[in-house]
Design a protein around this nucleic acid. Structure first.
Lengths: 189, 189
DNA sequence: TGTCAAAATTGATATATGTCAAGAAATCAG
DNA sequence: CTGATTTCTTGACATATATCAATTTTGACA
């Protein structure tokens, strides 16, 4: 079983045959640090799985960059709205490191419905999970302070703090780099 | 065509036959102001469509209530995590007014897959839309001030400001009732 | 309608976070 | 390795928002 198959099995509870059908449609590729998987306004026709590396999801708003999320090894990355509804992409997807990806094209993805009967169900459950995670995230912004959000990220994904420029983490948490830096100092000291 | 059918048609692009199959599984019911459709920790076995009235979605955190959302006429309301994955409900669903609902039970809902072949696809698209709306909402918390979030809500759902206790709106926007009140005064005066 | 409880407002003040500018540290290209 | 560039940190200060306490207003209902 390839690493991709193992990872997919982690997300979708499927038997080996279906696993093969799914995994075989993903094409491995390497991209360099700083490359864009997608640019805002374009059409998103790919879904990528990150074998290694980091991808930043961000958007330009009033000449500022707002980092929505950092996608890490073992996770998928795409612009769901554009990929699903063929709307212009709202996010830029840019690698923060050299990355090894497995990428599936939209056409190939949509054919999965015909080949894997369970696919729609799996897909629904997957998106539902994503929705639930986002609900939690909104909730954190409703009652947690910047410092509490910092601490929670530190608990949940400490590895990000070594690997990602801190300005992106601060943006993703909804605070300025200066505030982030001060909280950091306080927690370390 | 009943009002429910019209509304469902608004969410799901289906032909009349399917529409009937879907709508016929929803049972109309009346609930009084203050009633709970769901309590945190219980299992959520229902999805309701709001024909009229308002439902508050909130959670208790550290002896405070955090209002996640106010669901209004023409929309669905449930705890997606509990409804989909049979986990304990994270939200309380409480009516803010007398409500007319159309409610579907989980069992009946899940049978739709067998009766309406397109159901999984529709469901997937529906949840994807919800996900995208939440993404926008997270984004707003990353770069907008309390006042900007207030103004945006006022633009998008001005009717809420007459119909919903303002403390719930303030919580939903992630600010205190006092701050909400001051912003309100500023915008009115 | 009058009474009471809840909600909303207001003022005073505290705290958290943002802004701007400067300097230190880290990173990158050659 | 070195210089240049970017990122991070720090300080001083401004602003936004929270907190607490005291009214006022609203709304439910006896």
């Amino acid at each position: 079983m390839t690493d991709l198959q193992l990872y997919i099995k982690n997300f979708f509870d499927v038997n080996d045959e279906l696993l093969y059908e799914i995994a075989s449609r993903f094409v491995p590729r390497q991209v360099n640090k700083g490359d864009f998987l997608l640019k805002q306004g374009r059409q998103c026709n790919q879904l990528s799985f990150i074998k290694s590396g980091l991808v930043r999801i961000y958007t330009n708003i009033e000449d500022k960059e707002v980092t929505q999320w950092i996608s890490t090894q073992g996770y998928f990355v795409t612009d769901l709205a554009s990929f699903t509804f063929n709307t212009p992409a709202r996010w830029n997807l840019q690698t923060l490191t050299d990355c090894e990806l497995y990428t599936i094209e939209k056409d190939s993805y949509n054919q999965l419905i015909d080949v894997v009967p369970e696919w729609l169900q799996l897909e629904k459950l997957f998106i539902a999970k994503c929705f639930i995670i986002l609900e939690e995230r909104v909730n954190r912004h409703l009652f947690m302070t910047a410092e509490e959000r910092y601490n929670q990220l530190m608990e949940q994904q400490p590895e990000l703090f070594n690997q990602v420029p801190l300005q992106y983490l601060s943006s993703m948490l909804g605070m300025t780099p200066e505030t982030f830096s001060r909280i950091r100092k306080k927690q370390l000291g």
